[in-house]
């Protein structure tokens, strides 16, 4: 009888702790790496669609409007890179009001037209070099910036449309004029603070 009682109590304890462990594991199911990968998937898909179905379609296929870096003055579409940056800035602004949401992202390049988009931190420099040299691979690391620790992920950004390549090759401020379609032209850097 006593043994049965002990077994029942033991069973209950094991069951409860297993459920607790599982549910705890459920909360942590999304790792910081998975989150960065998921964020990048959304960003990259949106960027791809904007480039193909809006900019390239209207500028190159339908030929109804220009896309320009000076889109206000030229009454033109914003460039895909600007679209990406404006989104990143809006995310930063909106996330300031959301205490549980904290991440940042940017589009950078080893050959930037706007020099502010050159890699600055050690992780950015190493990451952009890695994704350019290792096609199809991402770069993950941790770094401390301004006294705060971050998980930093770098993903390759490739020239998906001929217009990306030709525009970068002939821009007055470009440091590289021999990009080809499908080349890695830069990278998306995503940062998520970690403890």
């Amino acid at each position: 009888m006593k043994v049965n009682k002990v077994l029942i109590i033991l069973g209950t304890v094991i069951t409860v702790s297993s459920v607790a462990t599982l549910s705890h594991a459920g909360e942590d199911m999304v790792s910081v790496k998975s989150m960065a990968d998921a964020l990048h998937l959304v960003m990259d898909s949106d960027r791809n669609i904007y480039t193909k179905k809006i900019v390239n379609r209207l500028v190159k296929k339908e030929k109804v409007i220009k896309a320009s870096e000076h889109f206000e003055d030229d009454k033109a579409l914003v460039l895909p890179a600007q679209m990406f940056r404006f989104g990143a800035e809006l995310v930063k602004k909106r996330s300031e009001k959301l205490p549980d949401v904290d991440f940042s992202y940017s589009l950078q390049s080893l050959w930037p037209i706007n020099k502010q988009n050159a890699p600055k931190t050690k992780a950015e420099k190493a990451g952009l070099k890695f994704v350019a040299e290792n096609i199809g691979k991402n770069y993950y690391t941790k770094e401390v910036l301004g006294g705060k620790k971050y998980f930093t992920a770098v993903y390759a950004d490739t020239g998906v449309a001929p217009v990306c390549v030709s525009c970068h090759n002939k821009h007055k401020d470009t440091p590289k004029r021999d990009f080809k379609l499908g080349d890695v032209m830069g990278g998306v850097v995503i940062r998520i603070p970690v403890k």
């Binding site: 206000e72 404006f86 990143a88 800035e89 809006l90 930063k92 602004k93 300031e96 940042s104 940017s106 600055k120 931190t121 950015e124 910036l145 301004g146 705060k148 971050y150 850097v189 940062r191 603070p193």
Partner: peptide
Amino acid sequence: KKPFDSHPRAKFTDPRNAD
């Protein structure tokens, strides 16, 4: 506001510009 302000707050809240 943008596009007039090329030094918006969002540029400086980005950790890469913490320095």
